[in-house]
């Protein structure tokens, strides 16, 4: 049980850590100064939440690993994030669409976690809900601006959605880890979260005059540590100093 709870907490943490990394790549390169601030703010929120979760994962594991150990000394195959969050930034439509799809899942997940039997997760979710609400508002507003903006922005937003849609199935995967913790009342059931995701996506895309892509082939594997090639580069960059100077204090 502790093993599955450790894995589950890592899944929650890694999504946020990797997405934070991607968003922080924008720093200084945003399309307008206000968005530079908004993206950095999101990167910080995700990072803060990832730290809380990694610290908790370390406690659950009980082998004395810190949040830094878990972030900087695990390899590609040990990361448990969904493939969606490791996808490259692309143009601003891709960055926004990636966050929008994640936010539409993350907010109902955090809301549902408030009812978890795991008190630590409840406390972490309690903090995250407020931020996640703002994140979803930010990404939804931009989806609408793009969809119902110019022809170019509409086209770019539609392309981004079409490109990323295949990565959304993995958000609701029902595997043994999920089932075991669902039964124990720790992880919320995927069904209602998927329903909330669908309803947000449909509503926002309608306002944005964008087309919801067909549910075709859905990519999976991230939750079990089988990632796209992108994650290796993210970790090579993120972990460089810890790997180059083992045991150093910073």
């Amino acid at each position: 049980m502790n093993d599955t709870r450790f894995t589950y907490t890592l899944r929650l943490a890694d999504d946020l850590l990797v997405l934070s990394h991607r968003l922080s790549e924008w720093c200084g390169h945003g399309p307008v100064l206000e968005e530079d601030i908004a993206l950095t703010n999101r990167a910080l929120d995700h990072l803060g939440e990832a730290r809380n979760l990694l610290q908790y994962a370390g406690q659950v594991e009980g082998q004395g690993r810190s949040d830094d150990d878990l972030a900087f000394l695990r390899n590609e195959r040990q990361y448990r994030n969904v493939k969606l969050v490791e996808q490259p930034n692309g143009d601003y439509a891709h960055t926004i669409a990636r966050s929008f799809l994640f936010d539409a899942y993350h907010l109902p997940l955090m809301q549902a976690l408030l009812k978890s039997k795991d008190e630590q997760l409840v406390a972490i979710a309690g903090k995250a809900v407020k931020e996640a609400t703002y994140h979803l508002r930010h990404s939804s507003e931009w989806m609408v601006r793009f969809g119902d903006g110019t022809d170019e922005s509409h086209q770019r937003a539609q392309t981004a959605l079409d490109d990323l849609w295949t990565f959304t199935g993995e958000l609701f995967v029902e595997d043994d880890v999920q089932k075991e913790l669902e039964k124990a009342g720790i992880a919320p059931a995927s069904g209602p979260i998927k329903a909330a995701f669908d309803s947000t996506v449909n509503e926002v895309l309608k306002e944005a005059t964008l087309k919801r892509p067909e549910d075709g082939f859905m990519a999976e594997g991230g939750r079990d540590g089988r990632h796209t090639e992108h994650l290796g580069y993210i970790l090579a960059e993120m972990q460089y100093l810890q790997r180059a100077y083992p045991g150093a204090e910073w």
């Binding site: 390169h29 307008v32 903006g149 922005s153």
Partner: peptide
């Protein structure tokens, strides 16, 4: 580059 790549974003926001 940031300014040029951001042009369509700013235009979309203004158009919307």
């Amino acid at each position: 580059t940031a300014h040029e790549n951001g042009r369509w974003v700013r235009e979309a926001a203004a158009a919307h």
